[in-house]
Design a protein around this nucleic acid. Structure first.
Lengths: 345, 345
DNA sequence: CTGTTAGCGCCTTCAG
DNA sequence: CTGAAGGCGCTAACAG
């Protein structure tokens, strides 16, 4: 704990920071008047306001929102629970959220579950203890306890990214099953027949699992089955995609198309092709997911699906701020996705 | 505001959530006893503890940390102020911080300044209003008001990434001037002589500016001056790097080396070379900054500087938790950097 | 081992 | 336009 500011006359709380009472005393008014001036509430005489502001400036008074929130039951914190730090999807979503929250004076409290539902439960519990104005959580798959806590929480709850299951209040995202399905249809329509899959452990990423399911359905409807897959059971991205594709091709040299669970890995796969003389598209079709900038800036742009991550964050945050009340029935906003043709499939 | 939980006997606060008093009543003990059980403080009879826990479980009671913090003056929030969402540097740093904070029960409140010092001032002020246990801010360049607020803040203050100026409490990072200087020396020692520079507006990114200064000094000590530079005045990354390098080479076709302000842009530059038949290294040396995974996974790995972003976040968080008191004299921890040889310079 | 008392710093409500 | 009283939900400091 630090020494209190250097001002002999100060009374201030034992905590070493000035309080409303200090400002009030210096301005010769009551606490509540200072409070009103600071919050711009209620009619205040211009002279009083000036005296108060002068006192505030002189002391360098900073309000204590903890006390304010306790007294008024309204915080400006928004709990944000994300799945992973591994790729820029995370940054894009948080960036979208932040771009809407910050101008409105709200602050995100961030937690990352690393795709662990039990960890998510812990994080949600400790966030709710801060009485956030609202919560934004990734995905729609939670433990029963998490679901119950969110259900009972005060403010609104947005479940983002995935709308394959029903949200409990607001869902913003798109169907990963449909995205996977359309990936398969697209590639089949282009004439590819011998499919491989490269991804992370699907048990740990429900969205990737949904895309996989959709893809499998799309393939089987066309009478095609997946030839083989290579799956990493540890977090990885570009380097992993490169290596896994190499492994997969070593086992199954006759594949004509490989679907990756995300762009990071697909870019790695593309690098493998470039390094080993395989011509993307003609020699082997590569298809990613997310439409990250890196994949689109490549000399051979990646074929992939654009997922509008920033938009998802923005829309979720905007809706939550717009309507502080929960709707009677859950609302689902489909932000859609689109196939990016690219040059690798 | 939602309806209170469905339990006729509840007394609970007007806010619709159960309080310590509700639990206490149900367990037939006093509030403070419940509080002690929940925090694991003080000796508690096993029987009482069980009764309390049963009541907690029955009601689904969730503690209110706002009240707890106000009463005890100790929050578990850590303010984290970062500069930008544009690349994964952000995610790496926050990931490092989170990996240390989460197990210790702390929660990051995140703000992003977008390299705007005035915005930083606002963010710092509203974070301090939450009485965070500590603050972690990017860089050492702040407005006087920001500096004063941080100086007066209760907990510790870590200034991360850049140690080119003295921190006010704890600095964790490395010298960007030195990194820029070493970049120049390295390239000069490899025989390059006609230098170009591609980057973002340096006025908006103090760290990039420091690297640039260091590079210029390194060049001038070798009797070399920068031939030309291309600078974007808007946020961009891979695509921007690609385009800016094209522009630069159109003006100055005889360059033999180009330094980029970061890897994202350098990768874009490399893509330009690949697409237009310029051989990296022999035809044109490319040098980045950060050693992002993408640059290292390329068939032609990027020559760059490794910046240990995750480590910086981890170390800053760990130090802050370890020693809650500010030291008499500021402490600087140099996490260093290293030149990654790569294949482009 | 448990309870009582007295706030934490601010805001709501009701009086002037 | 301003103020006094009371309380938000929890915990520190003492008692027993």
């Amino acid at each position: 704990m630090r020494a209190p500011p250097d001002d002999r006359r100060r009374a201030a709380g034992r905590r070493g920071a000035y309080t409303l009472a200090d400002v009030a005393e210096r301005a010769g008014v009551s606490e509540i008047t200072v409070s009103r001036v600071l919050r711009g509430k209620g009619p205040i005489a211009e002279k009083t306001r000036e005296r108060v502001m002068a006192a505030v400036a002189h002391l360098g008074y900073m309000p204590n929102r903890i006390a304010g929130t306790l007294a008024s039951a309204g915080s400006n914190l928004i709990g944000v629970v994300l799945s992973s730090f591994t790729n820029n999807v995370f940054a894009d979503v948080l960036g979208g959220i932040h771009s809407v929250l910050a101008p409105a004076g709200y602050q995100p409290v961030v937690g990352v579950t690393d795709y662990d539902e039990v960890e998510e439960e812990r994080i949600v519990a400790s966030m709710l203890a801060w009485q956030p104005a609202a919560m934004i959580v990734s995905g729609v798959d939670h433990t029963p306890a998490t679901r119950l806590m969110l259900q009972r929480a005060r403010g609104r709850v947005a479940e983002i990214m995935d709308i394959d299951s029903a949200p409990l209040d607001l869902g913003v995202g798109f169907s990963h099953r449909a995205a996977g399905y359309d990936t398969a249809r697209h590639l089949v329509s282009r004439g590819y027949r011998r499919f491989g899959y490269v991804g992370l452990d699907r048990a740990r990423d429900p969205r990737a699992a949904h895309r996989y399911e959709g893809m499998m359905r799309g393939l089987s409807e066309a009478g095609i089955s997946l030839v083989s897959e290579a799956v990493a059971d540890f977090p990885t991205s570009t380097q992993g995609g490169r290596k896994l594709l190499a492994d997969l091709l070593a086992r199954e040299p006759t594949l004509d198309a490989v679907v990756f669970s995300n762009d990071d890995m697909a870019v790695g796969g593309l690098f493998h092709c470039l390094a080993s003389g395989i011509r993307p598209r003609e020699g082997l079709a590569l298809f990613g997911f997310n439409a990250l900038e890196i994949g689109q800036a490549l000399p051979i742009p990646l074929s992939t699906i654009r997922s509008r991550r920033g938009t998802i964050g923005q829309v979720a945050a905007a809706r939550i701020l717009e309507t502080p009340q929960r709707p009677i029935d859950p609302v689902v906003i489909d932000t859609g996705y689109e196939i990016v043709e690219g040059a690798t499939a």
